[in-house]
Amino acid sequence: MLVMEVLTLIIQQRVRASKTFRYYKHCEEMQLINVCFADDLFNFARGEVESARLIMKSLSEFQRTSGLVPSIPKSTAYFYNVRNHVKHSIRSFMPFVEVKNHIGEGENESLSFAGRLQLCKSVLSSMHVYWALVLMIPIGIIQDFQQHMCGFLWSNGELKHGKAKVAWENICLSKSEGSLGIHSLEDVPIKSDFGSWGWLKLLQIRDLVKPFF
């Protein structure tokens, strides 16, 4: 974690010198760009070419300084509400795989409906719950992820018109109500007693630690 503070300083220095970098809208007030959890690193920026380029240049400088190399196969990029031509430009210099491309591709193409249902319940939903423990996930991202889950379940990819047999809110009812038993992702951060607990605790003490940064 101490080593990753070097990356934070590199990014902050580049941001101060930049006239084009823009924070992700939910991070601007706190000027939040990167967050570390154990072996995981999250970088946030507005979905614009120059902002993404600054992140990549910071990672390259950190690599030269520390000798640490990011694992490309284990690294992913998530785009939300970014125009296709902008996304294409960013991906021309960002080597990370786009997250949603893991759904409905490769070995998942041959899965039956029952297999896709089980994957939604045991893997995709669990991934969201895991990150909700430490992050306050914006409702827009949750809804976007649910849309991809719906498309994967009914169409094994992007949701096609007329393919969904049942409304998503009905799918998320309990099995006792005759539904498929998939949990609504929107209910997790709202109703769970432990959702985003760690992150909320950090927010509560931010005024105490802010003078030390």
Rank of each mutant, 00 (worst) to 15 (best):
L2F: 04
V6R: 13
V6Y: 01
T8K: 09
T8Y: 02
I11Q: 08
I11P: 00
I11E: 03
R14N: 09
R16Q: 11
T20A: 05
T20K: 13
F21D: 09
Y23I: 04
Y23L: 02
Y24D: 10
C27K: 15
E29L: 06
E29A: 06
N34S: 11
C36V: 12
D39F: 01
D39W: 02
D39H: 01
D40N: 10
D40K: 03
N43I: 04
F44C: 05
F44W: 06
F44V: 10
A45S: 11
R46T: 06
R46W: 00
R53D: 03
S58W: 00
L59I: 14
S60N: 07
S60F: 01
E61C: 03
R64Q: 14
R64I: 07
S66T: 15
V69N: 12
V69M: 12
V69G: 01
P70F: 15
K74V: 09
T76P: 00
F79L: 13
Y80N: 15
V82D: 09
R83L: 13
H85A: 09
V86K: 12
S89M: 11
R91W: 02
R91S: 14
F96H: 14
V97H: 11
V97Y: 12
E98A: 15
K100R: 14
N101P: 00
H102N: 15
G104Y: 06
N108C: 06
E109H: 07
E109V: 11
S110E: 13
F113W: 13
G115T: 14
L117D: 12
Q118L: 14
Q118S: 13
L119E: 13
C120L: 08
K121D: 09
V123H: 13
V123K: 12
M127A: 08
V129E: 14
W131T: 15
A132V: 05
L133I: 06
V134E: 10
V134H: 07
V134R: 12
I137N: 13
I137M: 09
I142V: 15
Q146P: 01
Q147P: 00
Q147A: 09
M149V: 15
G151I: 14
G151D: 11
L153P: 01
L153H: 06
W154F: 07
W154K: 11
S155G: 03
S155F: 04
N156P: 00
N156K: 11
N156M: 05
G157S: 09
E158P: 00
G162W: 04
K163S: 11
A164C: 07
K165N: 10
V166P: 01
V166I: 15
A167D: 10
E169R: 09
L173P: 00
K175V: 07
E177N: 04
S179C: 05
L180I: 05
L180F: 02
I182Q: 04
I182M: 06
H183Q: 10
H183N: 08
S184W: 01
S184G: 02
L185E: 07
E186W: 01
V188C: 04
P189I: 09
K191L: 10
F194Y: 03
G195K: 03
S196D: 08
S196R: 05
G198H: 10
G198M: 05
L202M: 09
Q204N: 04
Q204R: 12
I205L: 07
D207W: 01
D207V: 02
L208H: 05
V209T: 14
P211H: 04
P211W: 01
